[in-house]
């Protein structure tokens, strides 16, 4: 990599944060990995961003899991109504 290119990525927080996001969900190229490494080595702000981004993803995942585990119950009256509608429809066919 040329010195000018290294300088470009070293200062580009927009690109670094983009790669931080992409990397968590999909593979990035070796070149991109290197660029990100160079950037993070010199940018503590983006290091904080990365730690927080990982934490947020974990929280979102956890939030979702706990809502799935809640095991909600539909109210009985609505269930009866649905059963009636299904019966009606089956009788028609």
């Amino acid at each position: 990599m040329k010195a000018s290119e290294i300088k470009k990525i070293a200062y580009n927080c927009r690109k670094a944060t983009f790669l931080i996001e992409k990397q968590q969900l999909a593979p990035i190229t070796i070149r991109e990995k290197l660029e990100l490494k160079i950037h993070l080595a010199g940018c503590s702000i983006c290091r904080t961003f990365m730690q927080q981004s990982i934490a947020i993803n974990k929280m979102v995942h956890h939030l979702f899991q706990s809502s799935v585990r809640r095991d909600l119950k539909l109210d009985e009256r609505f269930k009866e109504e649905m059963e009636d509608k299904i019966r009606e429809k089956l009788d028609k066919n």
Partner: peptide
Amino acid sequence: FFYPDQGNWKLEHWPLQMGIEEPDAFI
């Protein structure tokens, strides 16, 4: 959030520590 030219963070948008950074932080 970012300056349009080089793409670095604007000062007022710098991510600050929120106490969630450590992997085992209590949320």
